[in-house]
Design a protein around this nucleic acid. Structure first.
Length: 427
DNA sequence: TGGGGTTAT
DNA sequence: ATAACCC
């Protein structure tokens, strides 16, 4: 037997009943306020989840009333064997309780209508519909809310920075990026789940899928794949043999519009680099000159950033009439701690030793006694670290923030600190 | 194709 | 440490 359903008690006075009605007013850009300072938190981050539990009122009785509306305004009990397993609210007003015996119920309320609820078929059917409605309708509601948020973000970007732009709203990052370009200047687009295949079908080539780049496209083309559909229907096994399991599975999911990558705030850059290209550079002296120029620029920027690089990388591009693209080579190495410490101080204190390190890296790639022809040089600082490990995300950072004694002034406009903050949101 | 920048192995 | 990717 199915579990008897539902709940409820007397109505607490600290909550207003929410008249069930819809009322999803998608008031486009109505209000004047513009607080979009919330970070987008990846779903699944437990500390930030909001859990909604829904609990149907006397489910079996409701199903019966839907099938026979004349029962609506009458006291109605659902009978299994000699029990009233549940009853509608008309019956409850008259004192009927769940799991009351038929005898007691008839005594209490002779006019009550009883229907047999021993066959669960129609309850099961309705139960499946509830699941489907919750899944589908809720997704649509969330997308509409997403489009309001997108509109506000674009408003803020225009009001504060004078910049216009497009936005795409969909169920994951891949789809939202793809759909964002549907209507081009200064507009936004929502992708409803049922239109996902249309969107994917509108892409004329796999190269258009974010995540499938130059190299992967070439390899896919060797397999005879060119359309997104081709990739969707291609043998996963052969794809795995060609590209490796992880890339294969990843891009095939992309071809179906599936993408579970988390939304992460990007924060400050993780590396700083400067590069220059030229027709020809073929002597060690020239190379050293170019490297020094790049380094001067980089040193200026890194000092404004405040962080210190712990790794340095030199990248070169050799001349080759063949593929001009991506014949880059690089060598990197840790920066000696002695040099790291002198970073805030005199800007030029570190220049000479760094040029020395970069020239050593250069000689790892180029045999200087043989002729060479470079068309690009690039220097990159990476592994950037803030001073004494007071970096956001570290234990140290949060322990330094002193939250318990807080109650401090400002900040957190939108958030309430109360542990009992019930907000009626109906109308 | 130039000047960035990130991520996977 | 380096290649592959992305905009």
């Amino acid at each position: 037997m199915e579990p008897p359903e539902e709940e409820e008690e007397a109505e607490p006075d600290w909550l207003c009943p929410q008249p069930g009605g819809p009322g999803i007013h998608a008031g486009p850009g109505r209000g004047s306020r513009a607080q979009c300072h919330d970070k987008i938190v990846p779903a699944g981050s437990k500390a930030h989840r909001v859990i909604v539990h829904t609990d149907l009122d006397c489910f079996y009785a409701q199903v019966e009333m839907i099938h026979n509306p004349e029962l609506r305004d009458k006291p109605l009990g659902v009978q299994q064997k000699n029990l009233v397993v549940t009853c509608n609210y008309e019956a409850r007003k008259l004192g009927i309780k769940k799991l009351m015996s038929i005898r007691d119920a008839k005594e209490k309320c002779p006019q009550m209508v009883l229907v047999n609820g021993e066959d669960l078929t129609q309850y099961r059917e309705m139960s499946y519909k509830v699941t489907a409605v919750n899944l589908n309708d809720v997704m649509h509601i969330r997308l509409l809310i997403g489009s309001q948020i997108a509109a506000e973000m674009r408003e803020v970007m225009y009001n504060r920075l004078g910049l216009t732009g497009c936005a795409g709203v969909a169920s994951n990052k891949l789809l939202s990026k793809l759909v964002s370009g549907t209507f081009k200047p200064n507009q936004q687009t929502v992708l409803l789940p049922e239109s996902c295949q249309d969107l994917l079908g509108s892409l004329d080539h796999i190269r258009k899928v974010p995540g499938i780049g130059y190299k992967t496209t070439k390899r896919l083309e060797l397999l005879g794949l060119s359309s997104v559909r081709d990739l969707q229907t291609f043998s996963p096994v052969i794809l795995e043999e060609t590209l490796g399991v992880s890339v294969a599975q990843h891009i095939q999911k992309l071809s179906y519009g599936e993408d579970d990558s988390p939304v992460a705030p990007s924060g400050p850059p993780q590396s700083l680099s400067d590069e220059d290209s030229f027709k020809k550079c073929s002597s060690e002296v020239e190379v050293e000159k170019k490297i020094e120029e790049l380094l001067v620029n980089l040193l200026d920027r890194i000092s404004k950033d405040g962080r210190k690089p712990h790794t340095i990388r030199l990248t070169i591009r050799k001349f080759s009439s063949a593929y001009k693209w991506f014949n880059r080579e690089s060598r990197q190495c840790p920066i000696p701690s002695q040099i790291i410490q002198k970073f805030g101080t005199g800007n030029d204190n570190v220049l000479t030793p760094l040029v020395g390190i970069l020239m050593k890296l250069f000689r790892k790639m180029i045999k200087v006694d043989e002729p060479f022809h470079l068309t690009l040089l690039s220097v990159c600082f990476l592994n950037l670290k803030s001073l004494p490990s007071l970096t956001k995300g570290s234990i140290g950072f949060y322990l330094t923030q002193s939250s318990p004694p807080s109650s401090s002034g400002k900040k957190m406009e939108g958030d309430q600190v109360n542990s009992c903050n019930f907000v009626p949101d109906g109308r």
